[in-house]
């Protein structure tokens, strides 16, 4: 079991301050920690940054993290990037980079750097994930203060693979900037599809079956398919149970399997699209004066896909 949530602000104030998407995602994840407590994570999209790219890196070995993170910065520079700012939190490194080359080349160079796990590369987005519950992640990474236009979040109860920071979700759709997924379910054709994508040169960083969805969407996007078409195709191509959400630079979407096996509810107001595993999560973002009131939520059925664009 896992929990997912997503939010998109339809009319963000592009000249003023953006909504506190990080805080909203945490408030949507906290009420569903009964769905999973071992790890949590968010993707926040639409951040205002100094550089062309936001890069999130994790050093798997705590004793060598300083050296690994220095190597990663060095890799960025050697690939032609200019680091505008860097922030280190424990084993995590967040870089704002000016870079004019292909993202795939920078990503490949970072993955070839010993000890580096690459959590995301985005123009306006970053994947922040950690072990523990959302409130712990919020405290450690200051997620609540991050502003953006939309995002997705996840609480994990590990079933098929190990518990560590890398195996937490969201998963970035390497090498596509700003595309990431969160998934609730189990994929039964994971090994078959993984072998296929590996033979095409895709690099998997974990043994988590949910990472496959990120690879799947990356493959579809690389073939020039639109997000909606890619999600629809996944209903046939992915086997098993799934409800997954995807965030892109300018959109949000979900896909729900043919068995209707994993829950999802959605809510739409004049300004906001909110989607989550349970209604109690949607209620997490209601303003205090709305707390006792009813909301119009919709429960998608089977084989359903929906996408929203900013």
């Amino acid at each position: 079991m896992c929990g997912v949530s997503g939010i998109l602000h339809k009319n963000p104030d592009t000249s003023g301050s953006l909504p506190l998407v990080g805080d909203q995602l945490i408030r949507m994840l906290e009420p569903i920690t009964h769905r999973g407590r071992d790890s949590s994570g968010v993707t926040i999209v639409g951040e205002r940054t100094e550089g062309d790219l936001l890069v999130r890196i994790w050093a798997s070995d705590a004793r060598e993290s300083a050296a690994v993170l220095a190597r990663a910065e060095d890799t960025v520079r050697r690939a032609g990037g200019v680091v505008c700012s860097g922030a280190q939190t424990g084993q995590f490194l967040r870089l704002e980079v000016n870079y004019e080359g292909e993202t795939a080349e920078l990503a490949a160079a970072l993955l070839d750097t010993p000890g580096v796990a690459l959590h995301s590369i985005g123009h306006t987005s970053e994947v922040i994930k950690d072990v523990g519950v959302p409130s712990a992640m919020e405290q450690r990474h200051g997620v609540g203060a991050i502003r953006g236009t939309h995002g997705i979040g996840h609480v994990r109860m590990a079933t098929e693979s190990r518990v560590d920071v890398n195996h937490a979700q969201p998963f970035w759709a390497y090498p596509f900037p700003d595309v990431s997924v969160v998934h609730n379910g189990q994929l039964t054709n994971y090994h078959k599809l993984r072998r296929m994508y590996e033979s095409r040169g895709h690099h998997f960083q974990t043994g988590n079956d949910s990472e496959l969805i990120a690879a799947y969407l990356a493959d579809k996007l690389a073939q020039g398919e639109g997000l909606d078409a890619a999600l629809r195709a996944s209903l046939d191509d992915l086997d098993g149970t799934f409800t997954y959400l995807v965030a892109t630079r300018d959109g949000l979407g979900y896909a729900k399997d043919q068995w209707s096996a994993k829950p999802l509810v959605t809510m739409e107001t004049a300004d906001v699209i909110a989607i989550a595993s349970e209604e109690i999560a949607l209620r997490g973002i209601l303003s205090p004066d709305m707390a006792g009131q009813e909301i119009d939520r919709v429960e998608p059925q089977k084989s359903e896909v929906m996408t929203w664009l900013l």
Partner: peptide, 8 residues
């Protein structure tokens, strides 16, 4: 029960 708030 007032304001059950979709609790389980």
């Amino acid at each position: 029960v007032r304001n059950p708030n979709a609790r389980h």
